[in-house]
Design a protein around this nucleic acid. Structure first.
Length: 124
DNA sequence: ATGCTGACGTCGC
DNA sequence: CGCGACGCCAGCA
C-alpha cells in the first residue's frame, strides 16, 4: 500500500544533492487532504529531528517554491497554528483547514492525533 | 563580521 | 514533572 509515491520520496531523500528545503517541500506536499503533520515529524523523517526550526523556516519559503506546498497542513506538535501569521491573512490557515474538515478552535486543531499524518509511519 | 531572531523539538536538571 | 538551555541554520540589523 502507498508504495508508488514512497519510491519517489526515498529517491529524493537519498539524493544528497537535494537541498534540505526542497526535501521539506516534497514531504509537505505528500500530506493528504484533510490531514496534518508537524514540523518535528518532517524533520525527524528527514533524519534531522533537531532541525524542526528549519522546517518552519522552509515553510516561509514555500511561496517562492514553484509547486504548491500545503503549508497550512503543517503545524507544531501540539496542533497549534503557530504559523498563521505568515499567511496572507491570519485566518487563511484556519479557513483552509476547516475547508478540509479539520476542526480548529482558538488556533488549536481538535482531535489533532486523529488528523495527524506521520510521514515516518505512513510514507515509508 | 558578528550576533540575534525565529512557522520547533529535545535534552538536562 | 515543570522549566530552562541548546541545537539547527538562513536572514537581517
Amino acid at each position: 500500500m502507498k508504495k508508488k509515491l514512497s519510491n519517489n520520496i526515498r529517491d529524493l531523500l537519498l539524493d544528497n544533492k537535494t537541498g534540505f528545503f526542497d526535501k521539506v517541500f516534497e514531504v509537505a506536499r505528500q500530506v493528504p487532504y484533510g490531514r496534518v503533520t508537524s514540523y518535528g515529524a518532517i524533520a525527524k523523517f528527514l533524519g534531522t529531528s533537531k532541525s524542526a526550526r528549519m522546517v518552519g523556516w522552509a515553510m516561509n519559503q514555500t511561496h517562492r517554491c514553484k509547486s504548491y506546498v500545503p503549508a497550512h497542513r503543517v503545524v507544531n506538535r501540539l496542533g497549534l497554528l503557530t504559523g498563521k501569521h505568515h499567511f496572507a491573512n491570519e485566518n487563511e490557515m484556519e479557513n483552509l483547514l476547516k475547508s478540509e474538515g479539520v476542526e480548529v478552535i482558538n488556533d488549536k486543531i481538535i482531535d489533532f492525533s486523529k488528523h495527524f499524518w506521520d510521514p515516518c509511519k505512513e510514507l515509508i
